[in-house]
Design a binder for these strands. Sequence first.
DNA 1: ATTTGTGCAAATCGTTTGCATCTGA
DNA 2: TCAGATGCAAACGATTTGCACAAAT
Lengths: 140, 140
Amino acid sequence: MRAKKTSTADLTVLERLRSSGLRPTRQRLALAKLLFSQGDRHVTAEALFNEAKDNRVDVSLATVYNALHDFTEKDLLREISIDSSRSYFDTNVGDHYHFYFETSGRLMDIPAERIAIANLPEAPGGAEVARVDVIIRIKD
Amino acid sequence: MRAKKTSTADLTVLERLRSSGLRPTRQRLALAKLLFSQGDRHVTAEALFNEAKDNRVDVSLATVYNALHDFTEKDLLREISIDSSRSYFDTNVGDHYHFYFETSGRLMDIPAERIAIANLPEAPGGAEVARVDVIIRIKD
DNA sequence: ATTTGTGCAAATCGTTTGCATCTGA
DNA sequence: TCAGATGCAAACGATTTGCACAAAT
């Protein structure tokens, strides 16, 4: 099975892992391909795990978590906390905000330019701002 | 102590529960008193539970969770999700945002007037905005 | 009397960990 | 070779639930 040809997309993903200092293992490559080959995505660990299974990618849930966290650490992903029960990982690591649809549990990106934030108070004690999260919660 | 006199503060809390349609039970009254008698607070269920114990208020953890959720439903509290592992309950239910100090895990209110948000995109499909959360994460 | 709330312990859910076994460089 | 990854199952921590009992209206 799987006459495994190396597509350009594969190369991109491979490069991406390599240049992040992450070993491009079979599992990480497969997950990265799922994550980064379809535009911006917001996935949960569980969802990615299932998607992997559907694509006959053999990974354990623990490995999915490991990969997601590794990718996040290397800024290939951004983690978003909507509520205490789920964590989303966003393939869009640029500056942007989110709509959150409460009933469907879906997230949608809002480009940073679409919201003007002014007068941002400086952090007390002059500490550094790690990031600004904006979530617009929608009753749908 | 415990000569249980009815202070005006108690009355306020009692009124508050009543007018929210919540039965002012011993436990809810005690918890509400802890929550609403010391200015704006950000508590976790666990923290409030311990505080109750310290004050010899006899409640179970399940009841603390119940009360916090009941209060939140009646808009006496606002729930804030910082990361997947903790939920904070904020006694300030007015319009405002938050600083989050990553190492200490502390929250600090930012009055709404201190941040100007412009061009807020309307919700797709004209759905209603439930609320806008802004969290400024601080490396401290 | 009826409805609503409470306590407890067990159950659940997402996530993490320990450790023996693999695998990429 | 061998540091770094993986898989599995067990451990975890926060939160929820089921149900018998207690309290508020």
